[in-house]
Design a binder for these strands. Structure first.
Lengths: 104, 104
DNA sequence: CCAACACATAAGCACAGACTTATGTGTTGG
DNA sequence: CCAACACATAAGTCTGTGCTTATGTGTTGG
């Protein structure tokens, strides 16, 4: 169940910080580590968890591995949210109507 | 930081199951426990975590406590999602444009 | 009133997970 | 080639957390 991995991945503040850093654009592991006062293996482990949750994807280029946000994870969260559409605040709720119209 | 409590709360499958049960409508703790093969204190503890994350709210009626989904938590998740709007899949992305138009 | 009820809190246990240091694996410039 | 680099994996530690049983608190019908 991928939902479990997604929410578990986002439950850790360090991983959310890494994810947010990647929102600025594609980056390698060393660049992600800058200013984080955490060991290199810890970064590697966190990135592995994010990758398994489909929140992040990697692209190896020589001896560097570039990471970037994976839209799949975000889409899965959006899908989860939509299940509780009936309880969204009114302003957000209208979005779901549009989503339904856009289904193929 | 409420985000941390929200994602931590949703990281547990039992809590997500309780949340999903509440999507069917307002319910008290005993009703939520039905078919869950878990102790009563465990339910109470989970509901406390969900409440602190603003995913659930309670309303005491006599000696019964009715729980229901709190839209605030869902709105906070939607707000977090919107921060990564640039990476949403195209179909979902259009929703954000509408959201922007609806801002007061 | 008070016994039964509905739920919360306390205390303790066992396992998960976030970190560390040490080491392994693959890549590249000189 | 091989040393330096970029990252992954291994192994161990320590804290957090999800569960249990036991007990506490507030409410209500008879």
């Amino acid at each position: 169940m991928i939902e479990n991995e997604i929410f578990r991945a986002l439950a850790d503040p360090t991983r959310r910080a890494l994810f947010e850093k990647l929102a600025a654009g594609r980056m390698n592991a060393s660049a992600l580590r800058q200013g984080m006062s955490i060991s290199q293996p810890a970064i590697s482990q966190h990135l592995s968890v994010l990758r398994q949750a489909r929140l992040v994807r990697e692209e190896r280029q020589g001896r560097v591995v570039n990471y970037e946000i994976d839209p799949d994870g975000l889409a899965l969260i959006a899908g989860w949210l939509e299940r509780y559409r009936a309880y969204w605040p009114a302003r957000v709720n209208a979005l779901s109507d549009l989503l339904k119209d856009m289904e193929p």
